[in-house]
């Protein structure tokens, strides 16, 4: 085995960091979609990722559906879970204070996680990589094909959402709810429907993150909380509500973790990302791309 040069080592850290960061970014985007319409931070977002992975494994490996079909059914089922979450746990709350809503999403995440444990047990599950496991070598840097799928899906999701919010009537209506729910109601937008839609959309994106992650890291029922915290961190770092901020925040956290593990003490790698996050917040209290004036108008 030839030794690896310092430059390829650096690139290897960057490639890995970007891949893991892309997962965080997708979770952060999910946070933002719901936040923009409802001002809720949905701490059950990580459970969508876990469910996406496990349902895909079930559909593809256990039931034996072809990859694409399994992918579609898993997205649909998780989307349905997201809609149920809104209808059963969020909408019935009569006096929705911010703290109550946070607790409600935590409660929902506990129920989802517990149900997943009852269905799948505690052991991890594997999913075949989407296009094989033969690594690609580029100048000493090793890239797993699945890395490309993860980053590719992040690009597709970002472009898709940008088009949706800017070009379609439905997307524009959702954006209007985000800006001013009362005004949106006045012009005849069904705000409750938009809230439901936001849960559906962010559940679907969470599911995609989970399905692309599983071939790399396996999946078990207990993975959601960690992903939710990382994704929440990414959303805050980038600035709540900003999609480009979410992508930037996610990739940054992934990169800092990977470079921190590579060059500094790996035991502290999670701390490095969080220290950077705190420093950014102390300098820019609304994150990198967030607008402080806008946050002032938010109830929370």
């Amino acid at each position: 085995m030839e030794t690896i040069s310092a430059a390829s080592q650096l690139f290897q850290f960057i490639v890995t960091g970007l891949t893991v960061g892309a997962i965080y970014a997708m979770v952060a985007i999910g946070f933002n979609i719901i936040y923009n319409v409802t001002e809720i931070i949905n701490l059950a977002q990580g459970e969508f990722v876990m469910l996406g992975g496990l349902i895909m494994v079930f559909m593809h490996v256990t039931v034996g559906l072809p990859m694409i079909l399994a992918f579609v059914t898993a997205v649909l089922l998780v989307t349905l879970t997201g809609m149920l979450l809104d209808r059963l746990a969020i909408k019935p709350i009569r006096q929705p204070s911010v703290m109550t809503l946070i607790i409600a999403t935590i409660a929902a995440s506990i129920v989802i996680k517990g149900t997943a444990m009852l269905i799948w047990g505690k052991s991890p599950y594997d999913l075949p990589a989407f296009s094989g496991r033969t690594p690609i070598e580029l100048g000493g840097v090793i890239i797993q094909p699945q890395y490309l799928w993860v980053i590719g899906f992040l690009v597709v999701v970002t472009i898709g959402l940008t088009l949706f919010f800017n070009r379609t009537i439905l997307g524009k209506a959702m954006a209007a709810c985000a800006d001013n729910p009362d005004a949106a109601r006045l012009v005849g937008i069904n705000v409750q429907y938009m809230v439901l839609l936001s849960f559906a959309l962010s559940a679907a994106i969470g599911a995609i993150a989970g399905m692309t992650l599983t071939p790399i890291a396996l999946m078990d029922y207990d993975r959601g909380a960690m992903l939710a915290i990382k994704g929440f961190g990414a959303a805050i770092l980038g600035g709540l509500g900003s999609f480009s901020g979410a992508v930037l925040g996610g990739l940054l956290i992934g990169l800092i973790e990977s470079l921190g593990a590579g060059f500094l003490l790996s035991g502290y790698k999670d701390a490095y990302a969080l220290i950077v996050l705190l420093l950014v917040l102390f300098l820019r209290p609304s994150g990198i791309m967030g607008n402080f004036e806008v946050t002032k108008f938010k109830r929370f």
């Binding site: 290897q12 890995t16 960690m226 990977s258 593990a261 790996s266 790698k269």
Partner: peptide
């Protein structure tokens, strides 16, 4: 002497560092 978290998705960074030390 490298470490990773029980919930980590990928240990490529730690292994790449090790690879350099042969």
């Amino acid at each position: 002497d490298e470490k990773y978290d029980p919930k980590d998705a990928d240990m490529t960074a730690q292994l790449t560092k090790i690879k350099g030390l042969a």
